[in-house]
């Protein structure tokens, strides 16, 4: 018999609120780490030096070519055998595995974003005496962001759901909580429904948030139907995401203090 009471009881219980919070912050931290690490991997991958780019190729090959679940288990079960005494907590283990895995995907996304920027932009920056990192930060990445941010949103949506894998090593995020609380009372089905509701809630909220960002980022482009040419909408994306822009556009509020330059 399906027990509706169990659903109602647990859906507002502190257990699941706590679990939803765990899922959320796990996702945010792993995603952020994935973006930062992915940026460095992307830059290494694009290096003309083989000794920098090749290890990244192997890295991406491994992390994209094997299941995340296996990577988690390798770290959780395998590593202590390999290095006796090295035992991560569940959270640490999950964060490491998820960040490393996400970095592989993000590195490809960021690489695509950087590649989409006209090489002439880098040349112009270098010709003005800008050094590599300055040119990256001020010229290339703000323009690459236009291409990077939509798939980044998808990655985070994925991340929210993929954290369910953490339940296999007993972490009490949403799925784990459903299993742990459901087992003694044989109400796993009901509690998985509760977990699903929370997942849907989180992904739906993120979806709205993502759309809000996109509307916020691109009003001019939407209003004018884009501009002809190779890179439509380029200006508003890059400029607004990273806070560039001239005063009438009211930019810079969204990403606070992203850089030291424009107002």
């Amino acid at each position: 018999m399906f027990d509706w009471d169990a659903v109602w009881k647990f859906i507002v219980s502190p257990f699941f609120l706590q679990a939803a919070w765990t899922t959320l912050w796990l996702s945010v931290v792993a995603q952020l780490a994935g973006v930062v690490l992915g940026l460095f991997l992307a830059l290494m991958r694009m290096s003309r030096f083989k000794w920098l780019s090749f290890p990244v190729q192997v890295y991406v090959w491994f992390f994209r070519g094997s299941p995340l679940l296996v990577q988690v288990l390798l770290l959780w079960d395998g590593l202590p055998k390999l290095v006796p005494g090295l035992l991560f907590s569940q959270i640490t283990c999950i964060l490491i595995a998820f960040s490393l895995n996400e970095a592989a995907y993000m590195s490809e996304i960021i690489r695509a974003g950087i590649s989409s920027v006209d090489p002439g932009q880098m040349e112009a920056a270098r010709a003005l005496g800008m050094r590599y990192w300055l040119a990256m930060r001020r010229i290339i990445l703000p323009q690459a962001a236009r291409v990077i941010i939509p798939p980044l949103g998808n990655e985070f949506n994925n991340m929210l759901k993929t954290t369910s894998i953490a339940s296999v090593i007993g972490l009490e995020e949403l799925t784990g909580t459903a299993e742990i609380l459901g087992a003694p009372t044989f109400s796993i089905f009901e509690l998985l429904i509760v977990a699903t509701v929370y997942y849907l809630l989180l992904t739906t909220l993120w979806d709205y948030f993502q759309r809000w960002i996109e509307r916020r980022l691109d009003p001019e482009y939407a209003a004018k139907g884009g501009r002809p040419g190779r890179r439509p909408g380029q200006k508003s994306w890059a400029q607004r995401v990273l806070g560039f822009g001239n005063p009438p556009l009211e930019s810079g509020e969204l990403i606070a203090g992203g850089h030291g330059g424009a107002r």
Partner: peptide
């Protein structure tokens, strides 16, 4: 090769400032 995400003025001050 003007910086596409910057106004004319921002293009010009970019390198002098940074």
């Amino acid at each position: 090769n003007l910086f596409a995400h910057m106004t004319a003025l921002e293009n010009i001050i970019e390198a002098p400032v940074h």
